[in-house]
Amino acid sequence: MSSRSNMKFLYAGLVIALIIAVLAPFIASSDPDGLESAAEGVVSEEKLAEMEEAGSVFSSPMPDYAIEGMGKSGEVAAIVVGTLLVLGISYGLGKVIKK
């Protein structure tokens, strides 16, 4: 494994990830996922409403991969930011923790 060709792999991976990030808001299905669908099927409406009410314990800056008031461009921006953030964190952690 040469480090130069592996940097090429990183750039190629990043390009693919960014293409997916830009396309996802337009082509991803907005149907509920498997867990949500299962919940709708097997949990009573009352309890679902209760769980909805409870919400989450942490207030995230970009909930549901969106930026308030920015529509699709905000969704693209959110997923691009997330992709770069994950890239940066994993690269940084790898560098810090490597032997």
Partner: peptide, 9 residues
């Protein structure tokens, strides 16, 4: 490290 980062992203 670049492989790990590419896969994570």
């Amino acid at each position: 490290v670049p492989i790990l980062a590419a896969l994570a992203a």
